[in-house]
Each structure stands twice: as C-alpha cells, then as structure tokens.
Amino acid sequence: MFLSNLAFASDTLKHAEEAHGGESSSWMLHHIADSRTIDLEPFGHINLPQFPPIHIGGIEIDLSITKHVFFMWIVSLILVVLLSLVAKSYRKQVVPKGLANLVEVFVVFIRDEIVLSVIGKEGLKYLHYFLTLFFFILLCNLFGLIPYGATATGNLAVTGGLAFLSFILIQLAGIKKHGLIGYYKGLVPHGVPGFVAPIMFIVEFLGLFAKAFALTVRLFANMTAGHIVILSLIGLIFVFKSVLVAPISIGFAIFINLLEILVAFIQAYIFTMLTALFVGLSIHQH
C-alpha cells in the first residue's frame, strides 16, 4: 500500500509540474482512465502493442491492447494457474488444504447461497459462469489496490462487456426454459388487464436493458469512486504544499484502501448475485 502511494506521489509530482501547479485534476483521471501504456514510474513505462482501427458498419473499433485489457489478461492467467492448481490438489485428496480451502469457501458459497438458493437446481448448468464471473471481478477489483496495478473493472467498457454477457445469459436462460415466444410473452406479469399489457411489455422489455445497464454502472462507479477518494486524499498534500498534511492524508488513504478491499469483495458478490437473481427471474417467470 505504501509503495502504491509512493508510485502515485511520484507520478503526481510529474503531472503537477506539467499542469503548471496543483490546480489541475487531470492527473487523477490519468490513474483511473485506460491508457496505451503501463506506467512503471519512476522506472519509465511500457508501450502496449497497437493495431490500426477497423471499421465495421461505420463504427471505428480500436482493438489495440490497452492497460485494462493487459490487466484482464494477467488476472485471467492468474486465475487459470491458481485454480488449476486447486483442482489438481483435489485429485490427490478430497480434504482441502491451504489455497484450496480458501477457494472452496467461495465456490461453495456461490453454489449454495447464490446459484442454488436464487435460481435452484436448474442454475447449476450456469454455475461455471457465475464462478468465473465472481473470481474474475474480484481479482480485477483487487488488482487496482496493488502498486502499479490498474482496475479493469473501473472501466465502463469492461463492466459493460461483462454486463452484456450477463444480459445474453439472462435471455438465453429464459428462452431455453420457456421458448423464444414464451419467454418474451412471460415478461408481462399474469393478471394484467389487456389494455395495460402492451405498456407492461415495453416497460419490462426496457427493464431487461436497465438491469444490464445498472450492473455496468454499479461496478464501474464503485471501483472508480474509491480510487478517486484515495487519489484526492493524496492530492491534498500537493494542494496544501505541506508535508504536515501527509500523515493525515496517508492515514485516511490507507483506511480507504482497506475499505476498498471490502468493496472489491462486496461488488464482486453483488454483480454475481444480481446476475443470478435476473437469471432466476427469467427462468421462474411466474
């Protein structure tokens, strides 16, 4: 944590100089926003590979690897390595030990408390999706708290991508259970008078997108907010141009950092829980 603060500080100094004084807040955004480089200040930075943008249907899509994509891949790599080790440890003995024990707590929790209790037995088909979702979001969240790390989940494109997948899963689960027409018909609750039904259908249909949108913004905002608070607290030192502010700023920053660890778990849980809830709703429509 101190190291990460140190990295912030050195970087901040540089940017403050560039912005001619401590008035600009662009340095904060620099930490939070995506970029094409991985900053390793004060050791310089690594440029990530760039690709020329491609145009599909008038939309310019830049498939260049960015900082957040890079960290998503690191997270994925860690997950694959760690979890396959855990899976291997089960092959030797059924009684979990060490890391397997930790992973098992979450796996059992997601299976029993989220999937089985919210969706039911049918949800077990999608268990691997929820497990991956939880661990992926959790690790992405936590990566923003370590030095030089970046929070991929603090990017609307990333949370939007995840929410899009959840949206697809919700629709597919519903369609698989009730059929294409049956599912969209079932969006309108029973016992609604005939003339209200079309309006209800539009509302419910928009609601499907609203759910995904809410998922997107909730995760993004939560992950971004904590970082902005930490950066602001550190920034106070440079705003007041006094070392005396440092102990208070750092103290609060550490407190917020600890809070962020809690938030990282809570948000991963909420995203998984809500996705499961929506899948459950689309499966059990009535």
């Binding site: 830049d62 994509v69 997950l79 694959v80 992926f136 494109a157 991508g161 997948l165």
Partner: peptide, 23 residues
C-alpha cells in the same frame, strides 16, 4: 468498443478454460 470486445472475448475464453481445468 475495442476494450469491450476484448473483455467479452477474454471472459468467454476464461469461462471455457476454467470450466475445463478448474470448475
């Protein structure tokens, strides 16, 4: 949109791999 596509691709591959090796 590029990052969103990368997210989707990465996540889907991750789901597939983890399903096989871990879950």
């Amino acid at each position: 949109p590029g990052v969103a596509i990368w997210t989707i691709v990465t996540f889907l591959i991750l789901v597939a791999i983890l399903r096989k090796v871990a879950w």
